[in-house]
Amino acid sequence: MKKWELKPAKDLGLPATERFRSLRRESGLVSTGMQLAWWSMVRGYMAVWHRLQITGKHHIPVQSPFIMVANHASHLDALVLASPLTWRLCDRIFLVAAGDVFFETPMVSAFAAGMLNALPLWRKKCGPRAMGQLRQRLLEEPCSYILFPEGSRSRDGQSTGFKPGLGMLVAETSVPVVPCYLDGSFEAMKPNQRLPRPRKIRLNIGEPVSFETVANQREGWVQIAETMERRVLELAPRRGA
């Protein structure tokens, strides 16, 4: 017989506001239900308003852990990236989001935590400790992340380069990293716009890469970031071709 494993919630005993911001947060029945409702709505919206076209869906791993990375040009990007995922992954997949945007006020962080299942990354102080926690969670649970290695939205639609933080999560592990290219989201919602326009969005998903042999140190992280940036840009549609 298998031994009983009684594992209390990792965020047990945290007050609500701290829970939302905690990297250890685990969804219960209520938040999972809200997330399911939210993502179904998002999927419908993407299909109708942006006529979302997805290619390479089969590249997404069936089981956690994995990380989806993409170029970042609009607030719509995370919603687009989560669209092709099956509902079974719903409470296993976390959006790694900027703490100073999504977790500053209690109302916004309740939305980010409850609906988007987002985990905060504080850009000014995302030290090795936070990255270590994210890496540990990725491997132990296991879970999956959606993240944008550029660190922030591009202001002009051009890539601003991948940061090596991504490498700190996956170096020396077999976790597959799925490159994705988002096309059209910048035109649909530019940084200064408040509401999205009904522009077509395309999502190209590439073959996953894992970095078992890349050393878990500075050079390795940079190498991983460069590899993934190249893989993502390769997926860009050739204009005028």
Partner: peptide
């Protein structure tokens, strides 16, 4: 029940939890 489920880890079994609720 919510407190109990979170403390025992039962909350990860969403289907069982849904039946109890």
């Amino acid at each position: 029940y919510r407190e109990y489920a979170r403390a025992t880890g039962l909350f990860r079994e969403k289907a069982v939890s849904a039946v109890v609720v």
